[in-house]
Design a protein around this nucleic acid. Structure first.
Lengths: 220, 220
DNA sequence: TTATGTGAAACAGTTCACAGCA
DNA sequence: TGCTGTGAACTGTTTCACATAA
């Protein structure tokens, strides 16, 4: 029986479509902006315009998680933001380990946006001899061997991988073994992980290639 | 009349589905790996496994751009790679301007992956007084006012924006005015640009939120 | 009156299954 | 035989259009 079409009271709600999931964080980002601008309410129309989507799509997406709007009036900005935060999980702070403290890793470490949105890097790992023990801000670089113990100690939820492609597969294995269930990877390699672990992958050169293709096409 | 369903000999080929576009660079990345491993041929099956897709999808995607395979045999790795490079446009080198030379900008500047895949950063721009004129490698930081002239001089195709959110909208306008038609933006703001300009957006905190949501869901 | 929430219709993308070629 | 290229079937997503509620 298809999940979500059942009338069984024990049935889970249908999982959100992948396309919707990709937009959830966009809504939250826009709502943060509206809060800063002191806006009280917002319509699906306005959200759609700001994010370059259609109003119907915004309503469908939000309706998947509850009835947040009031007819004739729109959505209460604060209320909707709180609801979305709960759905996404950023109503609490997430602890991340940064693995790989090279150029990219150090830039991520200094990036203010993470803390602003509820993510804190609470441990650094790198096995390069010249980095081991070196301090960046409050944090000293630890050897990978200490990952397992540190995950428990510092309540680490997520790993941010900024390691070279060759190392990524091995590091991912250790991360999974340490009990981490979410990985943000910057390595240009698809990671093979158990179904219980989520991976989001950001390959910078790959994004540039997608851009090059689009530019190439529109020149036709 | 729908483009692509026409039998008009002057008709353009149907534009590739967005979903396919997002995978094109993945295929190329995997083909590079196969070349390094000295593989001569590869089947849709094998590509699919490596990239966690279905074989039919790989074949459909590739068939959109031509007939690259031979039945019973699969695809010639070199030939397919050359063809994809042509389609994507990375059979030649692309010149990019890096705008915003903060932490993230400097990390991008040192990132080896760009050059490896045919992208070269050929100019740096930042209006921060303490950065103006400072050198990073071969490049001196220029004021935004020189963008227009430099685009022509150094044959710049793309802009990489690593500026704060507040500045992004204004910088994007200048970039477009300077005649650049492709923007890779790291700012957490949707950019409004003419239809003739392509934008690819990478919001690091947003990707972490998508990850948090997925982890949150699978804990249910 | 305004703007949500939601079935139904339309569209897009993926998978199936097999004809056809090496 | 093995594997591509491709219509046809299917699944997922978006848009439409309107009943409904503030």
């Amino acid at each position: 029986m298809a999940v979500g079409t059942s009338s069984d009271p024990e049935a889970r709600p249908a999982p959100a479509p992948k396309a919707t999931v990709a937009r959830l964080a966009l809504y939250l980002r826009e709502l943060d902006r509206l809060v800063r601008d002191q806006r009280e309410t917002v319509s699906s129309q306005q959200l759609a315009r700001a994010l370059q989507l259609s109003a119907a799509q915004v309503r469908k997406d939000l309706a998947l998680f509850g009835q947040f709007g009031s007819r004739g009036r729109g959505y209460q900005v604060h209320e909707l933001r709180a609801a979305l935060r709960e759905v996404i999980g950023t109503n609490r702070c997430w602890h991340a380990a940064l693995i790989g403290v090279g150029n990219l890793g150090r830039a991520l470490l200094r990036y203010k946006g993470f803390v602003q949105r509820g993510f804190e890097i609470v441990a650094l790992f790198d096995d390069a001899p010249d980095l081991l023990g070196k301090r960046f801000g409050d944090l000293a670089v630890l050897p990978m061997a200490e990952l397992y113990a540190t995950v428990a100690e510092r309540h680490i939820d997520l790993a941010i991988l900024a390691v070279p492609a060759e190392a990524a597969e091995g590091v991912a294995r250790q991360v999974v073994e340490a009990g981490i269930t979410g990985i943000l990877s910057f390595s240009p390699t698809p990671l093979v992980v158990p179904k219980t672990v989520s991976v989001v992958s950001v390959d910078l050169a790959l994004h540039l290639e997608q851009l090059a293709f689009q530019v190439n096409q529109s020149r036709t």
